[in-house]
Design a protein around this nucleic acid. Structure first.
Lengths: 258, 258
DNA sequence: GCCGTAGTTG
DNA sequence: CAACTACGGC
């Protein structure tokens, strides 16, 4: 089973690129972030035509997440972070597919640091950690997947010193990420490629992609039960070079579900 | 030699449509109006890639004209209407190609009538007529080509009575046009098709194109010397039906230059 | 740079 | 209906 995440930066502007990538990559499950479209403007007809069912949670101008599935039945569990239901930003969607709890997230960016947006990020992380703790405690097969807006380590950024004041690279944010790993979650991509330079985001500005001036923000974390099923994974980096692409690239893993 | 005019209504928004049309129609010379782009945002690289050289006169938000040439050398003569150089609107460009003086124009719309914008239109026409008179007096091979924003006769509009109060159809404007013909200029399209209903513009609103509720605004006028060289001509009406099209269609003639 | 939003013009 | 100006967000 191939599971992917892709921050599309506008589902409707990105539709041709998304459909082309779906056809090439043939993922079974896809978690999307930054739809930037209200609920009623999600292009469900074209997604269906490509062979995917979808559950999505849109929002007028920003945020918005979706989960696509080809051939696997989906059951919606949550459309906001439990304990954070009064959050008016669409950033969390949880479904069960093939007995796996799939948590699609678009964690707040938090810039500028410091400030109220960063405080909101830390508050969101607090609720998120509570949820991930529950999933671990219940020994469920689960995946945390999406745009974490966290650069985990200095390996995951082209010039660490330039990101010292950025909300994506603050020690308390990176600590929250490393605690997830300590609690039993496995960073699938880093596990498969322990030493490689791997980025998932390149800014639109300053020809960042041409210079490979990227950062790693999009992650796939596996619960202990699923770790042994991890077969392959990667970043579809070339997609970032296509015309009219998102500033993120798709990230994927293949699990051996037997 | 095939010479065309096309009011693109935004050169950068129209680029895919323009390139597709250039490839299909293969004109040698193209006069463009309503670039709606400043000088530095003209997409010269893509135009070059399509095989055309270009001279253009951009303007920040409105107006803007260009002349493209494939395989014929161009010499710029004027980039504003002589006698009207302090006009700050980019509406006139004159070049010599293959010994023909080509006058690309985007005549002011003039709405609402009456008012200062209509006065500006009449003032512009006054300067324009002076220039056309000079060209006739000098017996030069010349073409007046572009968006005249003039509906010449009742034949050239789907419902004349609805345009009685419009600046495009005022008697004094139509008179200026008929005087050009009297002075020796030949309306190429009307000469080729004396009785047909021919439109070059259909409003974006109210499904005007589907209803063929159009008007004829884009004209190609030949000096006496060139009249005998007129072989063919037409309106590429289907282009108006393409996705993301301009509200105008391209108009073209073929001259036998021997 | 490239998304979206709203308002203005034709 | 589809250009434009702006602005906010990342």
């Amino acid at each position: 089973m191939k599971i992917a995440t892709y921050n599309v930066n506008g589902i409707n502007s990105r539709l041709p690129v998304l459909l082309k990538w779906l056809q090439n990559a043939e993922p079974d499950i896809v978690c999307l972030q930054e739809l930037k479209a209200p609920q009623e403007k999600f292009p469900i007809d074209e997604i269906n035509k490509a062979g995917y069912e979808a559950i999505w949670h849109g929002q007028k101008q920003w945020n918005g997440i979706a989960i696509l599935s080809k051939g696997f039945e989906m059951t919606e569990v949550q459309r906001s972070l439990p304990g954070n239901e009064d959050d008016n930003q669409s950033r969390y969607l949880e479904v069960i597919i093939d007995q796996i709890v799939i948590c699609c997230l678009y964690l707040p960016n938090g810039n500028p640091y410091p400030g109220p947006k960063f405080d909101y990020k830390m508050e969101w992380i607090k609720h998120f950690k509570k949820r991930t703790k529950q999933l671990i405690d219940m020994d469920l097969p689960a995946i945390l997947i999406g745009d974490f807006n966290i650069i985990p380590t200095e390996k995951d950024v082209y010039k660490p010193e330039r990101w010292k004041d950025d909300a994506l690279f603050q020690p308390e944010v990176r600590k929250a990420y490393s605690q997830l790993l300590k609690n039993g979650w496995t960073d699938a991509i880093r596990t498969l490629f322990p030493e490689e330079t791997i980025y998932t985001f390149w800014d639109y500005l300053y020809k960042a992609y041409d210079r490979n001036a990227g950062i790693r923000l999009d992650h796939i974390l596996l619960s202990p039960y699923l770790r042994s099923q991890l077969m392959r994974g990667g970043v579809d980096k070339e997609v970032r070079g296509w015309p009219k692409s998102s500033d993120h690239a798709p990230v994927w893993v293949e699990l051996d579900r037997k």
